[in-house]
Structures are given as structure tokens and as C-alpha cells.
Nucleic acid binder design. Structure first.
Lengths: 148, 148
DNA sequence: ATTGAAACTCATGCTCC
DNA sequence: GGAGCATGAGTTTCAAT
């Protein structure tokens, strides 16, 4: 089996992933269910944690944060417990934090206004988490966060 | 200036980024505007492309896709034009594609069910885009897609 | 740009199946 | 589980400012 999420629920998830503001009425039309039936299913998916939240996608260029980068970090002192995610949680520029297998321990995705701000951000990250960093600048984003 | 998006619009964007299904009525209460005023502002932000869309966040573990990885790709033949994003667009497992500066040309973020599916996916990516790959497995995701 | 009202659509709980 | 209905809540348009 692929998992125990049923076909109609998958269809609902697919539709909501593509348009998080779709109404229960439209979801019902698309799935052949009544409004109240879809409503009940969506609430159940939310309660089970299958749907973890709803968001709007923002054009960061228009918001003055056109520079995106990946920062891979590695502890300076490998004997210390690595609680980098907690130490970096309040750094607003960090959009995502993944723990990874490989040479580095975490990959961060950050957004800043300009290279000078990236320099400042790197210094703050190194100081806050006691890590070395390796930065990869994003040139463009062909696509991002597509529903899978 | 930080950009020409005005303070009230920023507040609306912040609220919608955190809860994409928030009603216009609640957005009005949170911003001190009437329902129709926020409605007009949101429609304008959508028309200008400041809001690029709405989505639901899904728990991929529950959907049978618990394995996330980053795949960095590099063209085998650097003399050819690199149209990897187009060649890889129809590969459903690819959630995001970023063009980057550095040793590799693109970073892909993918989701699969199990290591065997990653092996299969890597073969398909190499064949479709004529690239070499470097894969980094995600162990856990402390946070992801936070509003900045 | 904003408001307030009007008309319409949707959400949500309930009962019955 | 789901349908159908009732009603309260939310959306959307519009005239006025």
C-alpha cells in the first residue's frame, strides 16, 4: 500500500495544495461530494495533521528581499551537542532549516535584500550556532513548492 | 526605502502567509480596515503578482513520501545549452528547482517513498537532463517555509 | 482609498439516511 | 460515512465620499 490516506482525501489534498483558498463548495463539485461531506473530510485531515497549515506565496522580489541563498553549516566543535535549529530559530532571514546527511549538518535557506546583508547574516549565524558556513547563491527559481 | 509595498499591505501579506485561509472579515479586524477595503487590497496584491498563490501544507510522511532529498546537478556536456528545468518539469517527484552559482548548476528538492525510488529517480533525472548528480538526504526538517 | 449597504455565496451544524 | 436543509457568516459589488 502507498499509505492509508484514501483516494477522495488525496484528491482534496491535491486541490487544496494547488489552491489553498478553494471553497468547500468548489471542492465538493470537484470531488462529487456535498459541501458538508467535504467540510467534514477537510476538518478531519486538519485534525489528523495531514494538512499542517495554509499559506500564501509571496513574491519576495517585490518585498525587497530579492537575494536567496542556501547556507550549509557544520559545527566548529563536533564534541558539543548540535542544537543549531534552536539557536537559529529567531533569525528572521532563515526561511527553512533541514537536517541532512553528508559533510554538513544542516542546510538553511535564507532571504536577504543585498550581498551586504548576507555578509552580516553569515556572521550572525556563525556566532549564534558556533558553526562554519558554505554559501550557495540562488540565481533564479524556475519553480518552487510544487505539489507532489 | 525597503520597497514600495506599503505597511498595511505588508501586514496583510504577513497574516496571509501565516494563514492563507484567513477571511477578509478577520483580516479587516486585524488591520483596522473594513472588510471591503482589505478585499480590494488583497485583489490588488494578487493582480500585481505580490501574492503568487495560495496553498496547503501537507504532511508528506502521512502521504507515503517520507524521504526528502536535495539533488545538485551538473551538465555532462557544458557546451550544450542547459535547459534542465524544462527537461525536468514533468518529473513529479521534483518539488523545487533553483538555479545556483557554484560548482553545480541547479539544486532540486525531491520527495520519494523509499531509497529504491530515489535510485530510480536519479536515473531518470540523469537521463532526461544529461547531468551528473550529487544527492544529500534530508534527515529531518526543523522548520520549512517560514514567513520572512 | 475607504466606507456601508445590498445581494449573493459559503460555512457549519443538524437531522435523517 | 454522506445528503439535504436552515441559518448565520463571509464575500463581492457598488454608489458615495
Amino acid at each position: 500500500m502507498t499509505s492509508d490516506v484514501e483516494a477522495t482525501d488525496r484528491k482534496i489534498l491535491e486541490l487544496l495544495a494547488a489552491d489553498g483558498r478553494m471553497s468547500f463548495t468548489d471542492l465538493g463539485k470537484a470531488t462529487g461530494l456535498s459541501t458538508s461531506a467535504v467540510h467534514q473530510r477537510v476538518k478531519r485531515l486538519e485534525a489528523r495533521g495531514t494538512i499542517t497549515g495554509y499559506g500564501a506565496s509571496i513574491d519576495h522580489d517585490q518585498l525587497g528581499l530579492p537575494l536567496t541563498a542556501f547556507i550549509s553549516i557544520r559545527p566548529i566543535d563536533p564534541s558539543q551537542p548540535d542544537d543549531s535549529p534552536e539557536r537559529l530559530r529567531d533569525v528572521a532571514e532563515i526561511e527553512s532549516c533541514w537536517s541532512v546527511a553528508g559533510d554538513e549538518s544542516y542546510i538553511l535557506k535564507v532571504r536577504v535584500a543585498a550581498p551586504i546583508d548576507l555578509e552580516d547574516l553569515l556572521a550572525r549565524i556563525r556566532a549564534a550556532a558556533n558553526v562554519s558556513t558554505r554559501t550557495t547563491i540562488v540565481l533564479s527559481t524556475p519553480y518552487e513548492n510544487r505539489p507532489v
